[in-house]
Design a protein around this nucleic acid. Structure first.
Lengths: 341, 341
DNA sequence: GGCAGTTACGAAAACGGTTTCGTGTTAATA
DNA sequence: TATTAACACGAAACCGTTTTCGTAACTGCC
């Protein structure tokens, strides 16, 4: 590995001191115009670039933010990440990603390795296992260390920090209301296990909408699938048995799978049965019929999370102040061809 | 920001020197058993963790690798990234991602900021604009600086470094041959602009397969769409005019869109017209009919790229040796419901 | 008791920067 | 001409580690 040009090299070459070089490069008044010229010319010629690591050590700021997400292949997290990366980049920050793969242990290990100086702050969504275990010691430690933390989407009340979420409950309510307004009466919900806070919120919104409109809340209308769902049998039985006229699904994958099963049973969409999913991904746009969805605006969520974090990092009071905020991004309903009218 | 415990703190507290603490913590024989115990106990109690930045500065190794990709929302790149991240993590490396967003400038800027000590090596796929301009000075500089570089998928002959690619030409050939073997005679190709090396390779494979089997190569069978394709009109005309009985698409998005247009024209898939796409994503699995695809094994490509890079970084000879290799990942054809039989 | 050889530790340099402070030289002033 | 201020620069500390080397103190030996 060829060594990079350092201040020391320039100093030696130009027969001045390191401090002089350093000051000359930042155009300090303290250095004569002549010397400044000379140093700058030399540095320019040999393409001097200060060493980031040395700067980080000196300034105790890395200008990197750590992003810990459960899954990178999932469309929603990908879009959030994209929002984070874009915004962070604009403000001169790099992004180090760690994927917990829904595992508590990986989440803990990843955070520990990053927390020792590698990053200035964290943006993260909890892994499924963490939400299941309700074990947040690692996060409390981060906060106690004074490292700013922004939680998004998969959050918890148990940790005091900044947060960015969707109005999941309200969005689910809105979606179900939309179906009720279209005259649907037997509305199903396909969701994941309840320990994921977002699924829980959506489920509550679903119940609320039914109750508010005088529809019975019946357990058999709700299908609970494992988070990583890979077989059709269960939902086939559900679609067959429940005799539904509309379904809300907590993600687009569930929705597209269910639509397909419904079609195989000869049901017409949206005529016989309507569908609304969460997540506005490619799948929704390209499914047949195109799926109406609750768009979560992941990119915007990512940008907001990054803004909150960086603002706190660059707060002249120091990131020590503990006024924590929770920003809510309002999801919107995108109507395509799986809903009537 | 609460300061972290340092060696100096421990030294002061225990009334020994910094060097003693450092050595005691690595269980050096040089330090008496008693002192070691004492120091380790203290460090343990107060949860001492060495500062990564200081270590990086000292060792001139960051244990971070920079990943520069054109797009993170695109399924293929996401899976490659996932492969990189998993593998790198296993070997104790962190991953810093920069998304060039298909822009030459962002690619250059991203690499420059990372190259000044922030990372030990790069893994990247060229942006579309870079491939169009055929401008590789930034990469040559990286290589000249002695920073190991692994290019994947979107590569170029103009830069000498390690590479990981698919056998795109062979894979396209195989796919077209599969269609020919099934008796198809008017086989179309839906591709992107030709400056992307992968599209070019696939196009060549397509031509080769036609020629080898005595089928005419006709320009009107080839539809060339902009890389970020967002309208249906063009391909609708194409599907309508060309009277095809099979189509190879260079990605799953094109394929699913075209299938839908064919279906709207009343064509049955795969009876009247067969489809094969590239990229084994959700879309292919969940489309109707499920799309037969050339699977690129992105995760594997990512792992291989990371392995090549880290092996080079940890090569005791130093990463200086310039034996560059190109590994080819063999794509495989996954048959689903859009191909006959 | 004088010597060499351990043992157990500390001082200091190094990684590559920034920044405070001190100082020698020159020019301006009394 | 002596004093002082401005100027232009360098020395050194610091960020938090590792590592080499030096050295006191102690041991054992003759």
């Amino acid at each position: 590995m060829k060594r990079n040009l350092t201040l020391k090299d320039i100093a030696r070459e130009l027969d001045v001191s390191i401090s002089t070089v350093s000051k000359a490069l930042k155009d300090s008044e303290e250095i004569s115009a002549e010397t400044r010229k000379k140093v700058q010319a030399f540095a320019n010629l040999y393409n001097y670039r200060p060493n980031n690591i040395a700067l980080s050590l000196k300034n105790r700021r890395t200008h990197s933010i750590g992003v810990v997400i459960p899954d990178i292949v999932h469309h929603f997290f990908t879009t959030v990440f994209w929002g984070i990366e874009q915004y962070a980049n604009e403000r001169g920050y790099n992004v180090i990603v760690c994927v917990s793969d829904e595992s508590f242990n990986r989440e803990v290990i990843n955070m520990e390795t990053l927390a020792n100086g590698s990053i200035d702050g964290f943006i993260m969504a909890l892994s499924a296992e963490t939400q299941l275990k309700q074990e947040f010691k690692h996060l409390h430690e981060i906060v106690a260390q004074g490292i700013p933390l922004v939680l998004f989407d998969r959050i918890t009340d148990k940790v005091v920090c900044d947060k960015v979420i969707n109005n999941d409950r309200g969005a689910a309510y809105m979606a179900v209301k939309r179906l009720i307004d279209a005259g649907r009466k037997k509305i199903g919900l396909v969701t994941t296990e309840r320990f994921l806070n977002v699924s829980e919120e959506r489920e509550e919104g679903y119940y609320q909408a039914l109750r508010d409109h005088g529809l019975p809340v019946r357990e058999e209308l709700v299908l609970r699938l494992p988070y990583r769902y890979d077989e059709e049998t269960l939902s086939a039985a559900y679609i067959a048995a429940a005799d539904l006229d509309a379904v809300l699904c907590v993600n687009e994958i569930f929705a597209v799978r269910c639509m397909r099963l419904a079609q195989e049973r000869g049901l017409r969409i949206p005529g016989d049965i309507a569908f609304i999913g969460f997540t506005d991904g490619l799948l929704s746009r390209l499914s047949n019929p195109a799926l109406s969805v609750v768009a979560q605006h992941g990119e915007q969520m990512g940008a907001i999370a990054a803004r909150m974090l960086i603002d706190k990092l660059e707060d002249p009071q120091g990131p020590g102040t503990d006024d924590y905020r929770t920003e809510v991004v309002r999801a919107s309903l995108i109507e395509r061809d799986s809903t009537p009218n």
